[in-house]
């Protein structure tokens, strides 16, 4: 894949990658590292794309896998969960996006488990239960129950914070 084809292949999916990386990082520095690593891995492993799924689904899968791996590595180094470092309150530092509500939503998403973060992101990106199950390696029934539980938890966390 040349530089040009790389850019044209990745660029349309940059928003997806950004949304996923934001859910797994708490600082701008971490976000940039995760974002770069995801782009690199997509570029390096694009040959393994089998075309059995959509290109976007494959990008989701790579992005989630890279983020989970990096998170695991950083946990091993820091010996604590990333969510332990989460600020309890919303602050300017967490304002990754323009709207305040979506920043609050992200703050709530970051408090979920790693897998739940991936599942809810895919759900919000309007991926089908089947696609989510394929990406996360589980079944559609499990996804349905899980999404219901995550939504309840997010609603509880956001209660009164957004309108």
């Amino acid at each position: 894949m040349s530089s040009d084809s790389y850019t044209s292949s990745i660029l349309p999916y940059a928003p997806i990658i950004i949304k996923i990386c934001r859910a797994y990082t708490n600082s701008e520095e971490d976000f940039e590292d995760y974002y770069q690593e995801v782009c690199l891995q997509i570029w390096k492993s694009h040959k393994s794309f089998s075309k059995q799924s959509q290109w976007s689904t494959w990008i989701y899968r790579v992005a989630l896998n890279v983020c989970l791996t990096l998170l695991k590595k950083s946990k091993q180094h820091q010996q604590r969960f990333a969510s332990d470092q989460l600020p309890a309150e919303f602050s300017e530092k967490n304002r990754a996006f323009q709207g305040e509500s979506v920043n609050q939503l992200y703050l709530a998403i970051r408090q979920l488990s790693e897998v739940d973060r991936g599942v809810i992101l895919l759900y919000l990106e309007e991926k089908s239960y089947q696609e989510i199950a394929d990406i996360t390696g589980t079944n559609t029934n499990n996804i349905g129950v899980r999404i219901k539980r995550i939504k309840e938890r997010l609603k509880k966390t956001l209660d009164g914070k957004v309108n």
């Binding site: 530089s3 790389y6 850019t7 990745i10 660029l11 940059a14 928003p15 950004i18 949304k19 974002y35 770069q36 782009c39 690199l40 570029w43 996006f97 323009q98 709207g99 509500s101 979506v102 609050q104 939503l105 809810i120 919000l124 939504k151 997010l154 609603k155 956001l158 209660d159 957004v162 309108n163």
Partner: peptide
């Protein structure tokens, strides 16, 4: 209160997230 789906859609309506991955910086 808005649903999380609405917050998500409205939050990314402008789709101002597209930053070109800089190849040389990767």
């Amino acid at each position: 209160e808005k649903s999380i789906e609405t917050i998500w859609k409205e939050g990314f309506l402008r789709n101002d997230l597209t930053v070109a991955p800089k190849i040389n910086n990767l």
